[in-house]
Design a protein around this nucleic acid. Structure first.
Lengths: 160, 160
DNA sequence: TTTTTAGTTCGACAATTGCAGAACTAAAAA
DNA sequence: TTTTTAGTTCTGCAATTGTCGAACTAAAAA
């Protein structure tokens, strides 16, 4: 029994730690923790009250967190006949899709700096413009590399 | 004169718009605007009061914003002899360096999910684990692609 | 038909974050 | 030596964001 409790605490810590990570990449704290919990839990689907209890949070927090994650698409739920509860889980393939989108965002900055550069075309400060060009060039190079990587990955796996 | 004023308004709008972008990638609103202003302004170096006036903000806000940006390294300043003011500007090469670091962060998530996967090694839910493996694999593939792109870019340009 | 359950919605509250204003500091100028 | 200037620091306020508790809803169960 003490063994179980100890394991539980380990899981809790892991969830907190991962939660912090997901916070950093833009989720609200509770959303991060819910997502983390669904990732590590066995089984990987959990009912509402279970999540609430594990995270020691209010129903409303959990409800909001889950709905955020479901809107993002990274969480969905399954049901079992004869059981009216929903079992929430990470939707790995949607998460993968989101990840792809995220990685592609690199190119946004490059476009923005490109614009700035166009506006600056008449500038006397050529060295500064050169610096910006460098950044645009780098970003575009990376973006292209990413596109290629995505393409080769999709070729290897079953696409999307 | 009306022409000038109109151009000024355009610049202001551009700065706001870019500021929002920099906000999204993690800066405080004012920091984002300061950075945006330094990017588009001609000349690309500006004194404290100039920035303050352009952004219609308080000295303390500007001071804090500039210091944040200087701590990040993406802004620094130059001076002119016989002039005690500092002229703040974007440090493009440091910004580039930061950008590189940022792009490399992709691999962090993959490591985290990799860990989760190890913890889940005894799980019955093979399909779920497969989904996670997919994500790790994708991330690693992309990370590798990025490393390669960085390497080839550095080979072409003067490294760093 | 009434009760229970699973989850949502709403209003208040707490924490965090960002900005402002004013007092302050250090160095240069007078 | 006194004053001015360029910028900082500190305190408080305002806005935003996250969470909670409690009342609510819709569907299932009794």
């Amino acid at each position: 029994m003490a063994v179980r409790a100890a394991k539980m605490d380990q899981v809790k810590q892991k969830v907190e730690q991962m939660g912090v990570f997901f916070e950093k990449i833009g989720h609200a704290p509770m959303s991060g923790r819910v997502f983390a919990y669904l990732l590590v839990s066995e089984p990987p689907y959990r009912e509402f009250y279970d999540i609430q209890e594990f995270l020691a949070a209010s129903k409303s927090s959990i409800s909001n967190a889950i709905n955020h994650l479901m809107n993002e698409g990274v969480v969905d739920y399954m049901t079992f006949s004869g059981d009216r509860k929903r079992y929430f889980r990470v939707n790995a393939s949607n998460w993968l899709k989101k990840t792809k989108e995220g990685v592609r965002q690199v190119s946004v900055l490059s476009e923005l700096v490109q614009e700035v550069l166009e506006d600056r075309s008449g500038s006397k400060h050529l060295d500064f413009n050169e610096g910006l060009k460098m950044i645009v060039d780098f970003q575009q190079h990376i973006a292209q590399g990413i596109e290629q990587s995505i393409a080769s990955w999709e070729a290897k796996h079953g696409k999307a």
